[in-house]
Simulated scan of single mutants.
Amino acid sequence: MASIQTFALGPLETNCYLYTDEACGFVIDPGGDPQAVVDTLTKDGLRLEAIVNTHLHFDHIHGNAALQNATGAPIYAPSADETLLQTEVGAGGFMGLPEVPPFSFTPLEPGRWQLCGLDCRVLPTPGHTQGSVSLYFPELQAVFVGDLIFARSVGRTDFPGGDTATLAASVREQIFTLPAETVIYPGHGPQTRVGDEAAHNPFFQDGFSI
Rank of each mutant, 00 (worst) to 15 (best):
L41C: 02
Y136S: 06
Q35Y: 07
H57V: 14
F103D: 02
E181W: 01
P110S: 11
G25D: 09
T71V: 08
S209E: 14
I184V: 06
A36W: 03
I28D: 02
F105P: 12
C116Q: 09
P138Y: 02
T40Y: 11
G10L: 08
L97R: 11
I184G: 01
G93N: 11
G117Y: 14
A199C: 09
E22V: 07
F7V: 04
T157M: 03
V171R: 00
V183T: 15
Q5M: 10
V171S: 03
V100H: 13
G127Q: 10
F150K: 03
E88C: 08
F7T: 02
G45P: 12
T42E: 14
T125A: 10
I184R: 02
A36F: 05
G63C: 06
H57Y: 14
Q35M: 12
A77K: 05
G96Y: 12
S153A: 15
R193T: 15
A198N: 10
V122K: 06
P179V: 04
N64R: 06
G131N: 04
L178K: 00
C116H: 08
T42S: 10
F94D: 13
H62I: 05
P190C: 08
A36I: 03
L118T: 03
A169V: 13
G207E: 13
F176A: 09
Q191L: 15
Y136T: 07
L167A: 00
G93F: 14
G187R: 00
P186R: 02
P74Q: 09
G72T: 01
N69P: 03
P102C: 03
T192Y: 04
M95Q: 12
P138W: 04
G93W: 13
H200I: 06
T129W: 11
R156L: 12
G72W: 03
T192G: 05
L140P: 08
F159R: 13
G187L: 01
L118Q: 06
D21K: 00
A199I: 09
G96F: 14
C16W: 00
D33K: 00
P138A: 01
A73K: 00
D163P: 06
P124C: 07
P34C: 02
V171Y: 01
G195P: 10
S132V: 02
S134Q: 02
S132T: 15
D44G: 08
A199P: 12
I184S: 00
R193D: 12
M95L: 11
L108K: 04
Y17H: 07
K43P: 07
V38L: 00
F26Q: 04
P190A: 13
S3D: 13
F7E: 04
A2E: 14
D81E: 13
E22K: 05
G63E: 05
R152G: 08
A151L: 10
P101R: 01
D39Q: 13
D39M: 06
S170C: 12
V183K: 08
V52T: 01
T83S: 09
S132F: 05
E197W: 05
Q130A: 14
F176I: 11
D59V: 06
G161A: 12
T40M: 11
L123P: 06
E13Q: 04
D29H: 01
T83G: 07
A77P: 10
S170G: 14
Q191D: 10
L67A: 01
E49P: 12
G96R: 08
